[in-house]
Protein backbone atom coordinates (compact mmCIF):
# COMPACT_ATOMS: atom_id res chain seq x y z
CA UNK A 1 0.00 0.00 0.00
CA UNK A 2 2.99 2.28 0.53
CA UNK A 3 6.21 2.04 -1.39
CA UNK A 4 9.23 4.27 -1.68
CA UNK A 5 12.13 4.11 -4.11
CA UNK A 6 15.49 5.84 -4.03
CA UNK A 7 14.69 8.34 -1.27
CA UNK A 8 17.35 10.93 -0.60
CA UNK A 9 17.31 13.84 1.86
CA UNK A 10 19.98 16.24 3.05
CA UNK A 11 20.15 18.77 5.87
CA UNK A 12 22.78 21.13 4.47
CA UNK A 13 25.92 19.04 4.23
CA UNK A 14 24.53 16.20 6.33
CA UNK A 15 23.00 13.25 4.50
CA UNK A 16 19.87 12.11 6.33
CA UNK A 17 18.63 9.64 3.71
CA UNK A 18 20.32 8.05 0.74
CA UNK A 19 18.87 5.57 -1.78
CA UNK A 20 16.25 4.26 0.65
CA UNK A 21 13.62 1.80 -0.62
CA UNK A 22 10.65 0.82 1.56
CA UNK A 23 7.58 -1.35 0.94
CA UNK A 24 4.62 -1.72 3.25
CA UNK A 25 1.73 -4.16 2.80
CA UNK A 26 -1.81 -3.69 4.15
CA UNK A 27 -2.11 -4.68 7.79
CA UNK A 28 1.63 -5.07 8.22
CA UNK A 29 3.73 -3.55 11.01
CA UNK A 30 7.14 -2.44 9.82
CA UNK A 31 9.75 -1.29 12.32
CA UNK A 32 12.49 1.16 11.38
CA UNK A 33 15.38 0.86 13.84
CA UNK A 34 18.75 2.52 14.25
CA UNK A 35 20.55 4.87 16.60
CA UNK A 36 19.56 8.50 16.92
CA UNK A 37 20.83 10.37 13.88
CA UNK A 38 20.49 7.33 11.62
CA UNK A 39 17.73 9.03 9.59
CA UNK A 40 14.79 6.95 10.78
CA UNK A 41 12.61 9.87 11.90
CA UNK A 42 13.43 11.76 8.69
CA UNK A 43 12.33 8.67 6.76
CA UNK A 44 9.06 8.60 8.70
CA UNK A 45 8.35 12.26 7.89
CA UNK A 46 9.20 11.76 4.20
CA UNK A 47 6.96 8.68 3.96
CA UNK A 48 4.10 10.58 5.62
CA UNK A 49 4.44 13.45 3.14
CA UNK A 50 5.49 15.92 5.84
CA UNK A 51 8.97 16.38 4.34
CA UNK A 52 9.70 16.53 0.62
CA UNK A 53 12.62 14.28 -0.37
CA UNK A 54 15.50 15.63 -2.47
CA UNK A 55 15.43 12.43 -4.51
CA UNK A 56 13.09 9.48 -5.03
CA UNK A 57 9.36 9.00 -4.74
CA UNK A 58 6.71 7.64 -2.38
CA UNK A 59 3.51 6.03 -3.68
CA UNK A 60 0.34 5.23 -1.80
CA UNK A 61 -2.41 2.94 -3.05
CA UNK A 62 -5.94 3.44 -1.78
CA UNK A 63 -8.10 0.32 -1.50
CA UNK A 64 -9.18 -0.54 -5.08
CA UNK A 65 -7.83 2.87 -6.08
CA UNK A 66 -5.02 4.08 -8.26
CA UNK A 67 -1.48 4.56 -7.02
CA UNK A 68 -0.78 8.19 -6.19
CA UNK A 69 2.56 9.81 -5.61
CA UNK A 70 2.43 11.24 -2.10
CA UNK A 71 4.57 14.31 -2.76
CA UNK A 72 2.71 15.17 -5.97
CA UNK A 73 -0.65 15.20 -4.20
CA UNK A 74 -2.35 18.58 -3.84
CA UNK A 75 -2.09 19.78 -0.24
CA UNK A 76 -5.87 19.55 0.45
CA UNK A 77 -5.88 15.90 -0.63
CA UNK A 78 -2.86 15.04 1.51
CA UNK A 79 -4.46 16.85 4.45
CA UNK A 80 -7.68 14.88 4.01
CA UNK A 81 -5.68 11.65 3.94
CA UNK A 82 -3.96 12.66 7.17
CA UNK A 83 -7.32 13.35 8.80
CA UNK A 84 -8.99 10.10 7.74
CA UNK A 85 -7.11 7.11 6.28
CA UNK A 86 -3.76 7.99 7.83
CA UNK A 87 -2.68 8.70 11.35
CA UNK A 88 0.48 9.99 12.98
CA UNK A 89 1.43 9.23 16.57
CA UNK A 90 4.01 11.67 17.90
CA UNK A 91 6.58 10.78 20.51
CA UNK A 92 5.36 13.74 22.57
CA UNK A 93 1.56 13.56 22.78
CA UNK A 94 1.39 17.25 23.71
CA UNK A 95 2.36 18.07 20.14
CA UNK A 96 -0.71 16.29 18.78
CA UNK A 97 -3.31 16.92 21.46
CA UNK A 98 -5.20 20.13 22.11
CA UNK A 99 -4.32 20.62 25.74
CA UNK A 100 -7.13 23.13 26.38
CA UNK A 101 -9.83 20.87 24.95
CA UNK A 102 -11.51 18.00 26.83
CA UNK A 103 -10.49 14.37 26.21
CA UNK A 104 -13.79 13.81 24.42
CA UNK A 105 -13.22 16.83 22.17
CA UNK A 106 -9.73 15.62 21.36
CA UNK A 107 -10.96 12.19 20.32
CA UNK A 108 -13.98 13.64 18.47
CA UNK A 109 -11.99 16.16 16.43
CA UNK A 110 -11.08 13.79 13.59
CA UNK A 111 -14.68 12.60 13.36
CA UNK A 112 -15.88 16.20 13.08
CA UNK A 113 -13.18 17.07 10.57
CA UNK A 114 -14.43 14.11 8.53
CA UNK A 115 -17.96 15.53 8.61
CA UNK A 116 -19.60 13.94 11.68
CA UNK A 117 -22.31 16.34 12.90
CA UNK A 118 -24.25 14.35 15.47
CA UNK A 119 -23.09 15.33 18.95
CA UNK A 120 -24.52 12.26 20.68
CA UNK A 121 -22.85 9.85 18.28
CA UNK A 122 -19.54 11.73 18.35
CA UNK A 123 -19.56 11.61 22.14
CA UNK A 124 -20.52 7.93 22.25
CA UNK A 125 -17.72 7.13 19.83
CA UNK A 126 -15.26 9.17 21.91
CA UNK A 127 -16.38 7.31 25.06
CA UNK A 128 -15.98 3.97 23.31
CA UNK A 129 -12.44 4.89 22.27
CA UNK A 130 -11.48 6.10 25.72
CA UNK A 131 -12.56 2.68 27.01
CA UNK A 132 -10.53 0.99 24.25
CA UNK A 133 -7.38 2.73 25.43
CA UNK A 134 -8.22 2.05 29.08
CA UNK A 135 -9.01 5.62 30.11
CA UNK A 136 -11.87 5.93 32.61
CA UNK A 137 -14.87 7.21 30.62
CA UNK A 138 -15.72 9.47 33.57
CA UNK A 139 -12.70 11.56 32.50
CA UNK A 140 -14.29 12.37 29.12
CA UNK A 141 -14.85 16.03 29.99
CA UNK A 142 -11.47 16.51 31.68
CA UNK A 143 -8.65 18.35 29.97
CA UNK A 144 -5.45 16.47 29.11
CA UNK A 145 -3.50 18.83 31.38
CA UNK A 146 -4.72 16.67 34.27
CA UNK A 147 -3.53 13.38 32.65
CA UNK A 148 -0.36 11.37 33.34
CA UNK A 149 2.24 10.76 30.60
CA UNK A 150 0.96 7.26 29.86
CA UNK A 151 -2.65 8.48 29.72
CA UNK A 152 -1.68 11.28 27.34
CA UNK A 153 -0.10 8.80 24.98
CA UNK A 154 -3.15 6.54 25.15
CA UNK A 155 -5.38 9.54 24.50
CA UNK A 156 -3.29 10.41 21.44
CA UNK A 157 -3.73 6.85 20.20
CA UNK A 158 -7.50 7.04 20.70
CA UNK A 159 -7.58 10.39 18.89
CA UNK A 160 -5.63 8.89 15.98
CA UNK A 161 -7.45 5.57 15.68
CA UNK A 162 -11.00 6.93 16.05
CA UNK A 163 -11.39 7.20 12.27
CA UNK A 164 -10.04 3.63 11.90
CA UNK A 165 -7.18 4.61 9.60
CA UNK A 166 -5.55 2.07 7.28
CA UNK A 167 -2.06 3.37 7.89
CA UNK A 168 -0.47 4.85 10.99
CA UNK A 169 2.99 6.36 11.36
CA UNK A 170 4.42 6.08 14.87
CA UNK A 171 7.48 7.98 16.10
CA UNK A 172 8.90 6.33 19.26
CA UNK A 173 5.40 5.98 20.76
CA UNK A 174 6.73 4.57 24.04
CA UNK A 175 9.73 6.88 24.31
CA UNK A 176 10.05 8.82 27.54
CA UNK A 177 7.70 6.54 29.52
CA UNK A 178 8.43 4.37 32.57
CA UNK A 179 9.12 0.71 31.81
CA UNK A 180 5.90 -0.56 33.40
CA UNK A 181 3.85 2.09 31.58
CA UNK A 182 5.65 1.15 28.35
CA UNK A 183 4.74 -2.51 28.65
CA UNK A 184 1.05 -1.74 29.10
CA UNK A 185 1.06 0.69 26.17
CA UNK A 186 2.87 -1.75 23.87
CA UNK A 187 0.34 -4.42 24.72
CA UNK A 188 -2.47 -2.01 23.92
CA UNK A 189 -0.96 -0.95 20.59
CA UNK A 190 -0.41 -4.58 19.60
CA UNK A 191 -3.98 -5.57 20.41
CA UNK A 192 -5.57 -2.61 18.62
CA UNK A 193 -3.38 -2.83 15.53
CA UNK A 194 -4.05 -6.54 15.11
CA UNK A 195 -7.76 -6.28 15.67
CA UNK A 196 -8.23 -3.35 13.30
CA UNK A 197 -5.76 -4.64 10.73
CA UNK A 198 -3.89 -1.33 10.60
CA UNK A 199 -0.63 -1.03 8.71
CA UNK A 200 2.04 0.70 10.80
CA UNK A 201 5.41 2.25 10.13
CA UNK A 202 7.02 2.31 13.55
CA UNK A 203 10.20 4.20 14.30
CA UNK A 204 12.01 3.02 17.42
CA UNK A 205 15.50 2.75 18.80
CA UNK A 206 14.35 -0.10 21.04
CA UNK A 207 14.81 -3.53 19.46
CA UNK A 208 12.51 -5.12 22.06
CA UNK A 209 9.69 -2.84 20.91
CA UNK A 210 10.37 -3.79 17.30
CA UNK A 211 10.37 -7.48 18.13
CA UNK A 212 7.10 -7.25 20.03
CA UNK A 213 5.15 -5.27 17.44
CA UNK A 214 6.69 -5.67 14.00
CA UNK A 215 6.67 -8.52 11.54
CA UNK A 216 9.34 -6.90 9.41
CA UNK A 217 12.26 -4.67 10.27
CA UNK A 218 14.47 -2.17 8.48
CA UNK A 219 17.85 -1.32 10.02
CA UNK A 220 19.24 2.14 9.24
CA UNK A 221 22.70 3.56 9.63
CA UNK A 222 23.81 7.01 8.48
CA UNK A 223 20.79 7.47 6.24
CA UNK A 224 21.04 4.10 4.51
CA UNK A 225 19.16 0.82 4.92
CA UNK A 226 21.84 -1.68 5.88
CA UNK A 227 19.62 -4.68 6.46
CA UNK A 228 15.95 -5.64 6.24
CA UNK A 229 13.84 -8.76 6.58
CA UNK A 230 11.55 -10.61 8.97
CA UNK A 231 12.06 -9.23 12.47
CA UNK A 232 12.86 -12.55 14.15
CA UNK A 233 15.27 -13.49 11.39
CA UNK A 234 17.14 -10.21 11.42
CA UNK A 235 17.38 -10.01 15.21
CA UNK A 236 18.28 -13.68 15.76
CA UNK A 237 20.75 -13.89 12.90
CA UNK A 238 21.96 -10.39 12.03
CA UNK A 239 24.11 -10.27 8.86
CA UNK A 240 25.34 -6.71 8.77
CA UNK A 241 28.02 -5.79 11.30
CA UNK A 242 26.04 -2.72 12.40
CA UNK A 243 22.96 -4.84 13.12
CA UNK A 244 25.18 -7.30 14.99
CA UNK A 245 26.49 -4.42 17.05
CA UNK A 246 22.97 -3.18 17.81
CA UNK A 247 21.78 -6.65 18.84
CA UNK A 248 24.82 -7.39 20.99
CA UNK A 249 24.63 -4.03 22.73
CA UNK A 250 21.06 -4.85 23.73
CA UNK A 251 22.13 -8.26 25.02
CA UNK A 252 25.00 -6.71 26.94
CA UNK A 253 22.79 -4.32 28.90
Amino acid sequence: MLSARGLGFRFGSITALEAVDVDLWPGEVLAVVGESGSGKTTLLHVLAGRLRPDAGQVWYREPDGPRTEVHAMPLPLLRRLHRSDWGFVEQDPRQALRMDVSAGGNVGERLMAAGARHYGRIRAEAARWLAEVEIDVARIDDRPTTFSGGMLQRLQIARTLVTEPRLVFMDEPTGGLDVSVQARLLDLIRTLVRRLGIAVVLVTHDLAVARLLAARIVVMQRGRVVEDGLTDQVLDDPRHPYTQLLVSSVLAT
Partner: peptide, 8 residues
Protein backbone atom coordinates in the same frame (compact mmCIF):
# COMPACT_ATOMS: atom_id res chain seq x y z
CA UNK B 1 -12.53 20.76 12.52
CA UNK B 2 -11.25 23.04 15.29
CA UNK B 3 -14.37 25.22 15.11
CA UNK B 4 -16.59 22.19 15.59
CA UNK B 5 -14.43 21.14 18.53
CA UNK B 6 -15.28 24.51 20.09
CA UNK B 7 -19.00 23.82 19.65
CA UNK B 8 -18.54 20.28 21.00
Amino acid sequence: GAMHVRLY
